[in-house]
Simulated assay, not measured.
Amino acid sequence: MKLARLLLPLTLAASLGAHAQQGVSLATGLTDFTTWSLYGSATASNMTPGNGFTYSDLQLTAAGTGGQGGAGFAPNAIALDFNQAFAFDFHFFIPVSQGLRGDGFTFTLSDTAGVGGAGSGLGYDGLSTASVAFAIDTFHFNGEPVSPSLQILSGGSVTPLAATETGLGDAIRDPDFQWYASVQYTPSGLNDNAGMLTGTIEHLNLGTFTVSAQVSFDQLGLVGTPVFYGFTAANGLATDGHFVTSAVPVPEPGSGALILAGLACLGMLARRRRAR
């Protein structure tokens, strides 16, 4: 399946990464998702389709197939100080599908890597009580936030701490433009391992949407624990696919030669220093 997509300006992601002292930018440089730990229906692949970019795709659920739950987590846990700010960012897209829209996906911080319940569980439900997630929920039952909604989840539960209804409807499925998303944390300043967690999605044509909730990482049990970061997704009767993607421009032949020449010069300088 050929997927047409255009990246949002990388300056957005570069600006976020430059100001964040903690966290990981998955929207700048190439994140090789084939090195990640995959669970359930998740798959990962790399390709250079000839449009000037190399892509790495994390497919959490496959478009056109229901009843799936998948997750992908970075292979190594990281240390986070919850009395300091942190940020993560990434690009995602949901291909156009002829079926029912749903169910959604999450960006998750957890002491455990894996996949939770399918369907409305978003691959997060039951994952770990020591976890928090930013969810893009694209299906709702009566009495729930109208989808697509942005939600902050915690404790392995899909009952949201906070939710924002976007009003996007099926427009959230866009085959030509990716969404840019960020998760940012602002500590309380009281050295209590608590603060405001904010999730944002941004689109070139459809606007910006955000959700925020107060979170206590001490109460969640994540303080002093290595933290895994990654994504979960699920569909049930719905058949949406959920993709997280990374891309970098393919160097032109002349650029590659310059890089090799530069590396050769560095090697010569290093040899001269050792000779002295």
Rank of each mutant, 00 (worst) to 15 (best):
P95K: 06
L80M: 08
L58R: 01
A113Q: 13
V132W: 00
T112N: 11
A171C: 02
I172L: 14
N142M: 11
Q151N: 15
I78N: 07
D81Y: 08
A135D: 12
T65A: 14
Y55W: 13
T129V: 15
V146F: 06
Y55H: 01
P49K: 06
T61D: 12
Q98K: 09
V132Q: 05
A85Y: 07
T159N: 14
F141M: 04
G121H: 00
G67Y: 00
V132T: 11
P49A: 11
P145H: 13
F86I: 08
G64Y: 11
L58I: 05
R173D: 10
T112Y: 07
G167E: 05
G155A: 11
V146L: 14
T61S: 10
G156K: 05
R101I: 05
D103V: 03
T108N: 05
P148L: 11
G66V: 04
P160M: 12
P145C: 13
D174H: 10
L127Q: 05
A71V: 01
Y55C: 03
P145I: 10
P75Q: 04
L150H: 03
S157M: 14
G114F: 06
D125F: 09
A113W: 09
G64H: 09
T164L: 08
L58A: 01
T129Y: 05
S120E: 06
P148R: 13
F53A: 05
Q68M: 02
P75Y: 02
